[in-house]
Amino acid sequence: MMDVAAIIQTTNDFLVAEFEANPAELTPDADMKATLELDSLDYIDLVVAVEAHFGFKVKPEDFQHIITFQHFYDYVAARARQLV
């Protein structure tokens, strides 16, 4: 099982690689949608990336409560724990 630091690192790595995010802007309290300039199609890409990197299915409605990167990290960590 990945620890939170590994989840954050993996997440930030694919956000930089696949979403051309600026690593300096990936702070826990930053607004994820605004920082990544996500539109509805980008959310589909994000779901696919999370599923590919962490091995669990994501429901689109799960993203309704994710505002900041910290919310996102917490969500991934909680779902990853359920896999164990």
Rank of each mutant, 00 (worst) to 15 (best):
I7C: 06
D74W: 11
L46A: 02
V84M: 05
I44S: 07
H53V: 01
T10Y: 01
Y75C: 13
D3R: 07
M32E: 07
P60K: 13
L26E: 05
A78F: 10
A24N: 09
I8S: 05
V58K: 00
V50C: 06
P28F: 02
A17L: 10
R79I: 00
K33N: 07
N22E: 14
A6P: 00
A30W: 08
V47F: 08
L26A: 08
A77C: 06
I67H: 14
K33G: 01
R81L: 12
D45V: 01
L26Y: 03
E20N: 14
I8G: 00
A30L: 05
F72N: 03
E37S: 14
P28W: 01
Y43L: 12
E18Y: 05
L41T: 09
L36P: 03
D39V: 07
A5W: 00
N22R: 08
R79M: 15
H53D: 08
T68C: 04
F69H: 04
I44E: 05
E61V: 09
A34M: 07
A21G: 03
E18P: 00
I7S: 06
E20Y: 12
M2L: 14
D29F: 03
V4D: 02
H71Q: 04
Q9M: 07
A80G: 01
Q64D: 15
K57D: 13
T11N: 02
M32S: 06
K57G: 00
Q70V: 04
V76P: 00
E37L: 06
D39P: 05
T35S: 09
E25L: 13
Y75S: 11
A49T: 02
H65A: 14
D45E: 14
V16K: 05
A52M: 04
V48D: 02
I67R: 15
M1L: 08
K59V: 10
D29K: 11
D29M: 07
Q9A: 14
V16E: 10
D3V: 03
E20Q: 13
Q82L: 15
H65S: 13
K59L: 12
T11C: 10
E25H: 04
